[in-house]
């Protein structure tokens, strides 16, 4: 399927920033297996673009969730617990990763000293 057409179909599947079941069903019925696979991949990428993943060493407090929501007002936030971070958090915004945690800081320090 042509990339441009695929993007248009993916955009048409969203209403007011959310995936519309009826539109998705209508589009999916018109596609063959290979096209459907590409369409699903496109939907996943689109959703991922709108989603911010916040990895925390422990469960988030309300104060923290309010602050993060202020930083990303128009995005969907997904909170995950990642004990290996030790302290702090890691924010993944598309292909940008912000390391605000002890694990990443120690890793960076280790690489710096190793150089």
């Amino acid at each position: 399927m042509h990339q441009r057409l695929l993007k248009q179909l993916v955009e048409l599947s969203f209403r007011k920033g959310e995936l519309n079941r009826q539109e998705v069903s209508k589009i999916a019925d018109a596609l063959n297996r290979q096209q459907l696979k590409a369409y699903i991949g496109g939907l996943k990428k689109r959703i991922k673009k709108e989603t911010i993943y916040v990895d925390l060493a422990a469960a988030p407090s309300q104060k923290l969730t309010e602050k993060v929501t202020m930083l990303y007002p128009n995005k969907q936030l997904v909170y995950r617990v990642a004990p290996e971070l030790l302290m702090g958090m890691r924010i993944t915004d598309g292909d940008n990763v912000f390391g605000l945690n002890l694990h990443d800081r120690l890793e960076t320090l280790r690489q710096y000293i190793g150089e």
Binding site: D95, N96, V97, F98, G99, Y112
Partner: peptide, 30 residues
């Protein structure tokens, strides 16, 4: 060296491997 360590927040631009063909890796992101 510790004193000279830059403590500013570091962000990384990363990608995810999508395909691996004949020594060519296709990556999304980056």
């Amino acid at each position: 060296r510790l004193h000279a360590f830059n403590q500013d927040l570091r962000s990384q631009n990363v990608g995810k491997v999508e395909r691996n063909n004949d020594g060519i890796i296709t990556v999304s992101g980056l």
